[in-house]
């Protein structure tokens, strides 16, 4: 790790500390993610091995934050009693994320809406990245504006913090015991479905889409129950006709029967094609929710010059 000089701690990601660092030989900025690995006499744990090699493959897409290299720092020989070793994932460094970007348009000196054509561009890249992950059988499971990094001047968006599974399962509480946000969580996950699929990410994409338009979260719940109520109040309480099997999900209860509201009212500045795409992303029945790959062909993106992507 002597190749890098840590500059500052930039966050505590879901899986461990993240540092901004500089690669000494090139002066290039990188993000170092430090993860402790429990090492017994078996060397690198199989789950870590399989997941990191997958991350390595996924980062071939320009819409996924590039994993530059992996440094596995073994316990030192003098301290061989220690059962831990550190794994550093070295990622390209991007200086901002979508959350900060939206915040800067809401608060600050000069609040103004995001430019509709920028929203369209960012959404297209987001769908591209998600489609890439899904085509490799990988769910992100924790898409949120904080996990979408931006290269501001180039209007580029990259997905970060891919949660892959067992080594780095998405916990209810993050490293710092800060509650993991529920705002982007799909209703089937909130209702305790165990067999969820790519549709969970599409739900999150829908919520992020709306948030870019509104500059505030679409469903800002502070508990799983409140989160469901937020969703039901806008989209109506789901019925068996709409979503077969919903009432047999583990955490289903009897809820007040809300009627669906007009989604346009939640995103008044969004064009009709955009509202149509949003509706398809927020379908209750996961099987009916639009796939990321299909979304790329949605008329909402017709006016976009796709050759640049």
């Amino acid at each position: 790790m002597e190749k890098y000089e840590k500059l500052e701690k930039v966050g505590e990601g879901t899986y461990g500390k993240v540092y901004k660092a500089v690669e000494k030989s090139t002066g290039k900025l990188v993000a170092l993610k430090k993860t402790r690995l429990e090492i017994d006499d078996e060397g690198i744990p199989p789950t870590a091995l399989r997941e990191i090699s997958l991350l390595q493959m996924l980062s071939t897409s320009i819409y996924v934050v590039r994993l530059l290299c992996v440094e596995h720092v073994l316990r030192s020989a003098e301290n061989s009693q220690s059962p831990k070793s550190n794994l550093y994932l070295v990622f390209e460094y991007l200086d901002t994320d979508l959350k900060k970007f939206i915040d800067s348009h809401r608060k600050g000196a000069n609040p103004k809406p995001l430019d509709p054509s920028l929203i369209q561009k960012l959404m297209y890249q987001l769908c591209k990245g998600v489609a890439h992950c899904h085509s490799h059988g990988v769910l992100h499971r924790d898409l949120k504006p904080q996990n979408l990094l931006l290269v501001k001047d180039k209007e580029l968006l990259k997905i970060a913090d891919l949660g892959l599974g067992r080594t780095f399962t998405v916990p209810l509480k993050s490293y710092t015991h800060e509650i993991v946000t529920l705002w982007y969580r799909a209703p089937e996950v909130l209702l305790g479905s165990t067999h969820y699929s790519t549709a969970v990410d599409i739900w999150s994409v829908g919520c992020i889409f709306a948030e870019m338009v509104r500059r505030q979260a679409l469903f800002p719940g502070d508990s799983e129950f409140q989160q469901l109520l937020h969703i039901f109040r806008l989209l109506g309480t789901p019925t068996e006709e709409q979503w077969p099997g919903v009432s047999s999900l583990r955490d289903w209860h009897v809820y007040p029967k809300w009627e669906p509201q007009d989604l346009t009212r939640a995103v008044p500045s969004l064009c009709p094609q955009g509202v149509d795409l949003l509706m398809k992303m927020l379908k209750y029945n996961p099987a009916e929710r639009i796939a990321a790959k299909t979304a790329l062909d949605h008329p909402y993106f017709d006016s976009l010059d796709k050759s640049q992507f």
């Binding site: 060397g43 399989r50 390595q56 020989a77």
Partner: peptide, 20 residues
Amino acid sequence: AQTIERMENVVLGALKWRMR
């Protein structure tokens, strides 16, 4: 075990963790 672990690590580095 430690020798194997170190060798594994060398191989992983050379293969850039592209194990799939």
